[in-house]
Design a binder for these strands. Structure first.
Length: 112
DNA sequence: TGGTTGACAGTCC
DNA sequence: CGGACTGCCAACC
């Protein structure tokens, strides 16, 4: 494994990470809601920043899911084993998914 | 359900 | 600097 030379987080990424730390344990928010909170019009840009989160899981990017209540991506990918890991981290906080969807969104969704 | 279109940060010419 | 391209997305057909 060759560790590619990395890059320090940009100001934008730090803003995203700071907002992410505000999500309480046991709750989740969406890429879009997080974007709105920091006044960014691109939810995808949020996903990009989180995909490079060097502070996971201290900066709990696993608590950010898609607007359709599916898991979204994790660790730089959109599917497979990495997403299973995201699911685990959430399950450990009591956040559960059935058939790919968040259970009890009314209680679990954090709206800032 | 699925395709299209909008938005935008970061990367690489 | 400019433009093309990609990406843990999302609103709207």
């Amino acid at each position: 494994m060759h560790a590619m030379p990395t890059r320090p987080p940009t100001q934008f990424e730090l803003r995203v990470y700071r907002a992410t730390t505000k999500i309480p344990r046991g709750r989740v928010t969406t890429y879009g809601l997080l974007a709105r909170h920091i006044r960014c019009r691109s939810a995808q840009a949020i996903g990009q920043a989180l995909s490079r989160n060097p502070f996971a899981p201290e900066v709990p990017c696993h608590r950010v899911i898609a607007s359709d209540m599916t898991l979204g991506g994790f660790a730089g990918r959109s599917g497979g084993k990495t997403v299973a890991r995201k699911n685990e981290l959430l399950a450990a906080e009591g956040v559960e998914f059935r058939t790919g969807r968040l259970l009890d969104p009314e209680r679990r969704l954090y709206r800032f």
